[in-house]
Amino acid sequence: MSHNNLTILSVISNFIIVVLKLIVGFLTGSVAVISEAVHSSMDLFASVITFFSIRIAGRPADDDHPYGHGKAENIAGTIETLLIFVAGIWIIIESINKFTNPHEIRLPALGIAVMLFGAAVNMIISRVIKRAADKANSVAMKSNALHLYTDVFTSLGIAGSLLLVYLTGWTWLDPTIAIITAIYIMYEAWKLLKESFPPLMDQRLNKKEEEEIKRIILAHKEDFIEFHDFRSRRAGAEEYIDFHLVVSSEMTVTEAHALCDKIEREIGEFYSKAQVLIHLEPEEERQMFNIY
């Protein structure tokens, strides 16, 4: 299934689940169910953002965007996480109000059934999207999958709280579980924000990734003298890598070009969407640089 079809599926499923949770939330009077409906509505909005961000990020480079549109995914991921924070704050405020004005929950069985249904649907779809996101290294799709995955646990937790309220009559459990749910989804949002936002500031790839790329370069050390000024960054699903490569003055342009092509191709096997730029330097212009 294509990425566009996956995001469309996510939008449709989220829309159905949001409508069901909102209806049941107001029927039961449960702030936890209503808060979960708000959470799912954020998932719906996130799915819509993901759909458009992937389409934008997939556009080829043009005159106005010579480096492509990859950062659209990072922008989308950042917006989605901020939306989760807003939802979490709203849930906590409503839960505090529920503590001061408690009332009996109506039709708890209906609420439990809808929560379990939503959890089952989102579990299946989140796994499918996560596999596709890992394969494409898409930040926006990873963000969408995380939204759906957290929805699974929050739905199950609220189903459990409704059952406990029904069995014990402890109405305070409803806002308590809602607050715990809010804190959990805000924590998950914070982790995702640390992944989606740094590329907007052109943060380098992590140490393990850079070491793997340098290992690929050094596998050809018999064909060059040294490399320096190594730089890397990520934009959406694409990685940008550039460095200076010092070669022997006796090497022909054709030979040097073939060496660069070989290195670029092998880095491309490690990162399928990597954009590699190699600046060649002849030996007589070599200066004293550190390789790393």
Rank of each mutant, 00 (worst) to 15 (best):
Y271A: 13
S35Q: 00
E250Y: 08
F26V: 13
T176S: 14
E226R: 03
I124N: 11
Q203L: 10
T150P: 09
T81V: 12
E255K: 07
K71W: 04
T7E: 06
T28G: 04
G68A: 10
F45P: 00
A159S: 15
S143P: 00
E283P: 02
P198I: 06
E94M: 11
S272M: 12
E281S: 12
H220D: 06
D223P: 02
E36K: 01
F230Q: 05
S40H: 04
S196G: 00
N206P: 00
S138G: 04
A61T: 11
L192G: 05
W90F: 06
M42L: 13
L22P: 08
E250H: 11
E36W: 01
L116M: 09
M186Q: 05
K98H: 05
L6F: 12
W90S: 15
K98T: 05
L280I: 15
P66I: 03
N97S: 15
V86G: 05
T252M: 07
F26T: 09
Y292I: 15
K142Y: 06
K142H: 02
C260L: 06
M288C: 03
N122E: 11
N206Q: 09
R55H: 09
Y166F: 14
D134P: 04
F230S: 02
D229P: 04
E80I: 15
N144L: 07
H220V: 01
L156K: 01
D223I: 02
T254Y: 07
I179K: 03
A120V: 12
I183S: 10
V24E: 01
M201P: 01
E266F: 14
A76Y: 03
I213M: 06
E283M: 03
E283L: 02
D43A: 03
H39D: 15
V11F: 11
L192Y: 02
N206A: 06
A132F: 01
S126E: 11
L205Q: 00
H3P: 04
D242Y: 02
A37T: 05
H220K: 13
T78G: 06
E238A: 05
K130W: 10
E104H: 13
V86S: 02
L167R: 10
K273A: 12
L156S: 05
L259M: 10
H69C: 06
V128Y: 08
F153P: 00
F243E: 06
I75N: 03
I84F: 12
G111A: 11
L22H: 09
F26A: 11
